[in-house]
């Protein structure tokens, strides 16, 4: 291909842009398979771990704490969990301080110990606690969680360890309550299941606080929800699910 000497206006503009963006008039005739400026490789930039701005995704797994507090439903520890996925934005203020926010979705499940939870009796008073096999509440929430970070160690931010102070607000977007009974004394019905969605007896908005301790790879967290799950429609029910959860965030690098 012969380089054309005369250009019309558009071609001149394209040529100029090519000159500026690609490489000082190189590669008119052939395909440029690779072009690299060394400064791009060496540049630290201001985006990435340890840099001014960073975004990464995370997985979260946690468990609800079974407490002895008054008016708390006893739950089945391992089966009452929270898991989630989200994106974390971070902006560095200095080598010691940073702030940011998480956007994420959390799936939560409570499995209540049937001998203490009395919720079902309000919902289906004709059934007894003795025959209840399963009492499971699940709900999904969308969460926004601003945080303030204090870094430890000389390397600052992501290469060190850090403590995050988090406030979160959440909107419940789905909920389901499942109750299953055995009927050992009935010759007709052996088992029955009660499933209810879009529950009217739960709160929709939550908020709480969280503290995280972690590093570039994972965070350990403890969270305290300041709002009860069940609302005033169950106000004569004395029991509420646990407010405390703990677990870990697994950080997925960008």
């Amino acid at each position: 291909m012969v380089l054309r000497v005369q250009y019309n206006f558009n071609e001149m503009r394209i040529a100029l842009i090519t000159h500026m963006l690609i490489f000082s008039m190189a590669g008119f005739c052939q395909d440029t398979l690779l072009y690299k400026k060394t400064v791009e490789t060496l540049s630290e930039g201001d985006f990435g771990p340890n840099k001014k701005n960073y975004i990464h995704t995370f997985f979260k797994v946690g468990f609800y704490q079974n407490t002895d507090a008054l008016n708390t439903c006893l739950i089945q520890g391992g089966n009452s969990f929270t898991s989630g996925y989200g994106v974390r934005f971070k902006r560095k203020l200095s080598s010691k301080l940073a702030f940011g926010y998480d956007l994420g979705y959390d799936f939560n499940q409570y499995r209540f110990k049937r001998d203490l939870s009395s919720l079902y009796s309000q919902l289906n008073g004709f059934l007894t606690a003795d025959s209840l096999k399963t009492d499971k509440l699940t709900f999904g929430i969308l969460e926004l969680a601003p945080y303030f970070r204090i870094n430890f160690g000389k390397r600052g931010d992501h290469l060190g360890k850090y403590l995050d102070f988090v406030f979160y607000g959440a909107l419940m977007i789905s909920s389901k309550h499942v109750l299953k009974w055995d009927h050992p004394n009935s010759s007709i019905i052996k088992k029955s299941t009660y499933k209810s969605r879009r529950l009217g007896y739960t709160n929709k908005l939550f908020y709480g606080i969280e503290m995280r301790y972690g590093n570039a790879f994972y965070n350990l967290f403890m969270r305290y929800r300041c709002v009860h799950i069940f609302n005033s429609k169950l106000n004569d029910n004395p029991y509420q699910p646990s407010l405390i959860s703990w677990g870990a965030y697994i950080i997925i690098p960008d």
């Binding site: 012969v2 440029t32 072009y35 690299k36």
Partner: peptide, 15 residues
């Protein structure tokens, strides 16, 4: 800076 070009016809490159 450095680059790799396919080779089709002359001239190969103008700098």
């Amino acid at each position: 800076e450095f680059s790799v070009l396919s080779v089709e016809k002359n001239p190969i490159v103008k700098i």
